[in-house]
């Protein structure tokens, strides 16, 4: 009973936040609504006892992706009016797509009515998703795991190789050269005869 109450509360907030994402005029507000949507869906995951997915959703999407997204939105001067120009022109197409998707969902529900799957049995009380994932991630799937790591390394190498450039004429300090310098490099003793007073 309490669970159902929590579910409906957060589901309502989730739907409201999702509507906020697409309806708010300010892109920063939209991004913040999306954060709210992620956090509430994380709560729904945890209600389903999928605590690992819930935590990952908060850590990865809210903690990393959305923060980065907010930075980009705030730093780039996105012209909202310009983006809304094509709205009326593309609206009919959007409505058609939305209707098609709604019809598909309706079809699936209609053909499968009355044969919804039975409620799945809950796992044992001391069962932990995180533990179960960890048990296979570093054993059965260690090869795939290492390959994913190498793919990330390649992404780093590629990003640096493609974007890092030394521009000509930059007045940057070369600290190791400064530290390693010797007196002979900087001071030159010149022996010269004193000139007669005029």
């Amino acid at each position: 009973m309490i669970e159902a109450g929590i579910f409906y509360l957060f589901a309502t907030v989730l739907v409201g936040a999702a509507v906020g994402v697409i309806s708010s005029r300010n892109p920063v507000h939209a991004a913040l609504f999306l954060v709210l949507a992620f956090v509430t869906s994380a709560v729904l995951w945890i209600l389903l006892e999928a605590e690992f997915l819930g935590i990952v959703l908060v850590l990865v999407y809210v903690g990393a992706v959305m923060v980065l997204f907010l930075f980009v939105v705030m730093m780039l001067n996105v012209n909202i009016e310009k983006m809304r120009v094509g709205f009326t022109r593309y609206a009919p197409l959007g409505i058609i797509v939305a209707l098609a998707v709604a019809a598909e969902i309706g079809y699936v529900i209609w053909t499968r009515r009355g044969q919804l799957p039975e409620k799945q049995p809950l796992p044992a009380d001391n069962y932990s998703n995180t533990e179960a994932l960890g048990a296979v991630l570093y054993t059965d799937y260690v090869y795939a795991f290492e390959l994913a790591a190498i793919i990330l390394l390649v992404a780093i190498v590629a990003a640096i190789a493609l974007t890092m450039r030394q521009r000509a004429g930059v007045k940057a300090q070369d600290i190791s050269a400064q530290v390693a310098t010797r007196r002979q490099d900087r001071v030159r003793l010149v022996s010269m005869d004193s000139e007669p007073r005029q």
């Binding site: 799937y141 090869y143 795939a144 390959l147 994913a148 190498i150 793919i151 390649v154 992404a155 190498v157 590629a158 190789a161 493609l162 974007t163 450039r165």
Partner: peptide, 25 residues
């Protein structure tokens, strides 16, 4: 011998190739 490794190998190759195509930036 597993679709997962097959896909990861493909991505590893493709990602390297994308960067090599753009190398003359």
């Amino acid at each position: 011998h597993h679709f997962l490794t097959l896909y990861l190998g493909l991505e590893l190759l493709s990602l390297s190739l994308y960067a090599m195509v753009a190398f003359d930036r």
